[in-house]
Simulated assay, not measured.
Amino acid sequence: MIIVFCDDDQTLVDLAFKEIEEYEEVFSRCILYNDPKLNRLKLGKNENLFISAHGSDTSAIIGGHGAKSLSLTPSQLWNRIRHLFPVNYEGAIYLASCYAADELPSQTGNSTNEKSFITQLSEISGQTVYGQSGGQPLEFIPQPDEEDPEYQWTKG
């Protein structure tokens, strides 16, 4: 399943639906974060969850582009998706978002970097979480076994 957590960029929505058309066996379905049907959905025991959103290189948030767009911390994201996970879930969460796997600059002024979005989400949720490094916009959502080093997933 792909969930698009963005309220101001149709490109991410179009990309997600294109991936469903081309790789239905991998992604199975796509839904927007604000679709009322999301609250009734459940993941299969081994079904991976893909999240598409914009990221930030300065703080652990995902969402949209603009100052007034959707903006979620790892805790807020987990609170929105936790109902999807069955007991004994064995899949993984894949976050297709710029900087999701990158450590962030310290928010407190000390020299220690903040943990990446995916590391924080993994700690909060207890799930296996993968993400993308760097700020290069994706032309597609990589599959879990992606071999191209430019698009490989990093584990949180």
Rank of each mutant, 00 (worst) to 15 (best):
D57N: 15
W78T: 03
T154I: 13
Q107G: 08
Q132P: 00
V13M: 09
G156M: 06
G44W: 03
S28M: 01
I118R: 03
K45D: 04
E19G: 01
Q132D: 00
P144H: 13
N79I: 04
L38D: 01
K18W: 02
D9Q: 08
E21P: 00
C30A: 14
E146D: 09
V4L: 06
F5E: 08
A53D: 12
S111Q: 10
F140I: 00
E47S: 09
K115P: 03
P137G: 06
L138T: 02
A16D: 06
Y151Q: 06
N113R: 12
T119V: 11
D9L: 04
H54Y: 15
Q136R: 10
Y94R: 04
P142D: 11
L121D: 03
N113S: 08
I124G: 05
Q10I: 09
D9V: 10
L84V: 05
T154D: 10
G135H: 05
Q127R: 10
T11N: 05
S52W: 07
L41G: 01
T154C: 13
L43N: 04
I3N: 06
K45G: 00
D7K: 09
K18I: 03
S69H: 14
Q76S: 12
M1P: 15
M1C: 13
L77G: 04
D57I: 06
V13K: 15
E90Y: 00
I61C: 12
E139T: 12
G64D: 11
F27I: 02
K37C: 00
P36C: 01
D14T: 13
G91F: 04
K42M: 08
Q10A: 12
N34V: 00
V13D: 12
K68E: 12
P105G: 13
F27N: 00
E139H: 07
E22A: 07
A53R: 09
A100H: 13
L72I: 09
D57K: 15
P36M: 00
L15I: 10
G156D: 07
Q107F: 02
A53Y: 08
H65V: 14
L12F: 06
G91M: 02
Y23L: 04
I51W: 12
E103R: 10
I61D: 05
A67G: 05
I20V: 10
I51N: 12
C98K: 07
S52Q: 14
R40V: 00
G44K: 10
P149L: 12
P142T: 06
D148L: 12
F117I: 05
V87K: 14
Y99F: 15
L41Y: 08
F5A: 07
I61T: 15
Y130N: 04
I93A: 07
Q132F: 03
S111A: 14
K155G: 02
P142I: 04
V129L: 02
P142Q: 08
F5W: 10
D8V: 07
L138V: 02
L43M: 02
Q152P: 01
S125P: 03
T154N: 10
P105Y: 11
N34Y: 02
D8E: 05
M1L: 15
F85M: 09
